[in-house]
Design a protein around this nucleic acid. Structure first.
Lengths: 334, 334
DNA sequence: AATAATTCCAAAAACGTTTTTGGAACTTAC
DNA sequence: GTAAGTTCCAAAAACGTTTTTGGAATTATT
């Protein structure tokens, strides 16, 4: 059996309560006694039972991160986020539980809340975000949404400035003389898509350009996402001179499609990605992209959550981190 | 406050023990009573407290996955593994705790074990694997190593056939007429590296070729890993005609370096990757690579661990899943 | 020198389950 | 018609902590 606090107490001829207070830094214990306890704890490699402590304290020192089950389609994106999350958690001594969404997201959240498996939840999953949010609002479990800016002023979120990011990309292309700019979207991400689309349309309108429905199309999720969609753009009677992709993966596959059809990037076609994942440095040419500070977003989300775990009555924290255009080789003057 | 088993018991005028037995499927409860209990539990959305249950049952229904803190450098690789892990865990009703390694791995493992935070651990971290293993062997916590084949016959692992995979790549190149074959390694992964190096050398020797030390070099971890190393290979007085990279990321960056120096792949240079991550389909040309069944490995590792959680006295399960050469456009006849 | 305050610690309660033990009520067996 | 099973359930113990309460011993205050 594992060593318990009782073993320590017996060994030192103290009561368990004193040992507990000594280890948790309470004041009601003599200096000398505390030292003895700490030494014994070290000697026996004593660590308090996680379950027992959680039960008594009503705190688990765990936070949950809910991610989509299609996580393997967004490996780089995700791992940057998670890095930030783990960084922030490590500082506070909390641990991370990873939940992948199931078919019934709300049932899953119900269990997590009612069984008190975690102290709080970072909602990254996007499947049925609205339902998930409205459920969590009825529970007392702190939560924060990661990656989406939420309209409801009562919910905390950490996202990046989508409108601004997309606008920066558009302005870069427009000022480079492009007028036929395609948007290679992801319709299955309606929340992000609609924001980006708005900026796309606004930029065109402000530039006095027509909005051509043919130039907005969607990549489908899967391996080589965006490959087929890019090809269909290249089948248009009048080709676009620039493409903004929903993310870097799509941009990379668009690059591949263009290359296969001997459309030269950036000479014949400019391509802009989104997110600035590491791979965007590895293409030929390197991707111009809108950088989202993914790691920082993860870190910030964890911090926001932890502050709510500490006190859930503080007003909601709603953060849009700035997006930044990174100009590399995949775009040029028309 | 959350609803407890006592609330259900009071509401139904039963004892807590009966409610517990009813919900957990024990025999000692009348059909009618069980039905009433189940209905009440559903009505109140009752879920037993995770902490209380863990404490009493000495089982947490959680397993840990230990990953390196440099996880963001291996996003795709990692997310495929994790997908398999979560798939297997979901089937068994277990949850996943994600631990990133800290400076003192053993101290971290000590805490995890002694605090009984999880039922078992999947060791994916490679930093000080030997120390970690020898520590875990002294504890009673079940564990399995993921991604490395371990010599010690007492430890369970799930890996893929490194020797075979590397050998397949070499044979492919040799039979295509290549004789100057470089190996773009990762010295900081000594375990995997040494196995691959052995196969590399063996294949050359069997083909009656000299082993040229200049042709074995190492990529360093970081963004664009392998870019600089590839460039130094291209600076050699006599160029290699083929390169086997330690992983696909390195291969992709090697591809980029070659392209920038107008070395045509595969005409002037063949490049082989390793792992078959999704991105290996997105390059121009697409990567020839050695496929490791990453998702299956993760799944298998979780299954092996769970079987040990169920009964830790079963003999070690040691699995090398087959690696498979996938021939695509980045390699050709010399 | 008596009282008040302080320091240190032990005892006990509490957290919410599961599991063990035991016993009442009802059936079956002879 | 008693003995022996069965069926169902309640009571209590146990899991390993933290926190509250209270009290003895020591020190400070008047």
């Amino acid at each position: 059996m594992a060593v318990t606090i009782l073993d320590i107490a017996k060994h030192l001829d103290l009561s368990v309560s004193t040992v507990s207070r000594a280890l948790n830094g309470y004041g009601d214990v003599a200096k000398e006694t505390r030292k003895r306890v700490e030494e014994a704890a070290k000697e026996f490699d004593y660590h308090p039972s996680d379950a027992a402590r959680s039960l008594r304290q009503k705190r688990t020192n765990r936070v949950g991160l809910l991610i989509p089950s299609t996580i393997h389609y967004m490996g780089e994106f995700f791992s940057e986020l998670i890095r930030g999350v783990t960084l922030a958690l490590a500082e506070s001594g909390s641990n991370l539980m990873l939940y992948t969404t199931t078919t019934d997201e709300v049932a899953q959240l119900t269990r997590i809340c009612r069984a008190r498996e975690v102290d709080g939840i970072i909602l990254f999953s996007a499947d049925k975000l609205d339902e998930a949010i409205s459920f969590l609002k009825t529970e007392s479990l702190p939560f924060v949404v990661l990656g989406h800016s939420i309209n409801d002023p009562a919910v905390s979120f950490v996202a990046s400035d989508n409108r601004g990011g997309m606008m920066a990309a558009m302005q870069h292309l427009l000022s480079s003389g492009h007028s036929r700019i395609a948007y290679l979207a992801r319709y299955d991400q309606p929340r992000l898509h609609s924001q980006r689309l708005l900026s796309y349309q606004q930029a065109l309108t402000e530039a006095g350009l027509e909005i051509d429905g043919d130039l907005v199309t969607s990549a489908s999720i899967g391996t080589r996402t965006g490959y087929r969609a890019m090809n269909s753009l290249l089948d248009l009677p009048v080709l676009p001179t620039a493409v903004i992709a929903f993310n870097d993966q799509i941009a990379i596959n668009a690059l591949q499609a263009a290359s296969e059809r001997h459309v030269s990037v950036p000479d014949d076609l400019s391509i802009v990605g989104y997110n600035d994942i590491r791979s965007s440095l590895s293409t030929v040419p390197q991707l111009t992209t809108v950088r989202q500070p993914l790691s920082e977003m993860g870190k910030k989300a964890a911090e926001v959550l932890l502050s709510r775990v500490h006190d859930n009555d503080i007003p909601p924290i709603r953060t849009n981190l700035p997006a930044e255009l990174i100009i590399r080789g995949s775009t040029s003057h028309v």
